[in-house]
């Protein structure tokens, strides 16, 4: 999963992007870069400005300040060149309900040169809609609309794929398939994929890096692994006397520990420290019943970073 992205030139670059609506700052000085061949997760509580940022990325909204470059083309100055590189779903995948899935795709295919019938069929097969593609969209389930939305975004082989809440309405199998498909696109075809989602555990599996946004400000961009592990690995011990154990560890190993319950303590320590800790405690006659290494989930970490703001 770890690929060096530093030396590549960015597929998408945001420079000091600011959006003010009626004197209120919705997006405040956002700058980050997304590279070819990675899945970038855009994370934040509701109303944080994720969708506004995505709207500015695809030119639906204008920036008050700053600029966005897609493959080096400014979305402001060279709209056609920039947007040509982008496939996107913004919020819900709203298609023309009175047309069939196929007619919808044909409609979008007409607007970009170089998409033939073969490509439409290919994309339909990719999202596994072959059987229902000639039915009217109003008869589709939310999941099928979502897949048709992905098909629409993929039609012109974009080098940047932006999906707003792509797992919305998909069943577990659908989410699994989408994840595999996005990974394939990113790793094999070098597409830069941007996803926003509320499903944090899903993001953990899907994304390589995540950017966290809150109240229009970027709190940080980190790789998923770093992000999860930055809080430090912890070891949770269940012993006969928690206070005694904490004291011993503090004196002998100079490590801080937090007591969870009277018999349970947590020590901030990596895997390599575990044998030493056990050894020390055994020598100090502390009885050990259980040793568990604790990894923070993205969700815990997210709540920590955003100050425990409720999600979804």
């Amino acid at each position: 999963m770890s690929r060096s992205v530093e030396e590549k030139k960015p597929a998408v670059k945001l420079e000091h992007v600011t959006k003010k609506i009626g004197g209120k700052t919705i997006i405040d000085d956002l700058s980050f870069e997304i590279y070819k061949g990675e899945v970038f997760g855009f994370l934040g509580p509701n109303g944080a400005g994720k969708t506004t940022t995505i709207r500015m990325l695809v030119g639906l909204m204008k920036m008050t300040k700053g600029n966005i470059f897609i493959q080096g083309h400014s979305i402001k100055g060279e709209f056609k060149e920039a947007i040509r590189q982008v496939g996107a779903i913004v919020e819900n995948p709203e298609m023309y309900k009175f047309l069939t899935g196929y007619q919808n795709l044909k409609h979008y295919a007409r607007m970009i040169p170089g998409i033939d019938k073969k490509r439409i069929d290919e994309v339909v097969k990719l999202v596994e809609l072959e059987e229902r593609i000639n039915e009217k969209v109003k008869r589709y389930s939310l999941g099928m609309r979502q897949r048709l939305g992905v098909a629409q975004a993929m039609l012109h082989r974009p080098s940047v794929l932006i999906l707003d809440e792509p797992t919305n309405g998909l069943d577990p199998q659908g989410i699994h398939d989408l994840r595999n498909y996005l990974h394939e696109l990113a790793y094999k075809e070098g597409v830069a994929v941007i996803v926003s989602s509320h499903l944090l555990s899903e993001m953990q599996l899907m994304c390589d890096r995540i950017g966290i946004i809150q109240k229009g400000k970027l709190l940080g961009v980190e790789s998923v692994n770093d992000f999860v592990h930055q809080g430090g690995e912890k070891v949770r011990l269940t012993v006969d006397d928690g206070a005694m154990a904490a004291k011993v560890i503090h004196q002998k190993l100079a490590m801080e520990s937090a007591s969870i319950e009277t018999e349970t303590i947590e020590i901030e320590a990596g895997r390599e420290k575990v044998p030493v800790i056990i050894d020390t405690l055994v020598h100090a006659n502390v009885k050990i019943y259980e040793v568990v290494s604790v990894t923070q989930s993205l969700e815990d970490r997210f709540l920590e970073v955003t100050g425990g703001k409720a999600l979804v």
């Binding site: 639906l60 919020e91 995948p93």
Partner: peptide, 14 residues
């Protein structure tokens, strides 16, 4: 009203 305008305006067409 239907929201389809979003998918229409993100094509390389002014």
């Amino acid at each position: 009203n239907t929201g389809t305008i979003k998918l229409l305006l993100i094509r390389p067409i002014y």
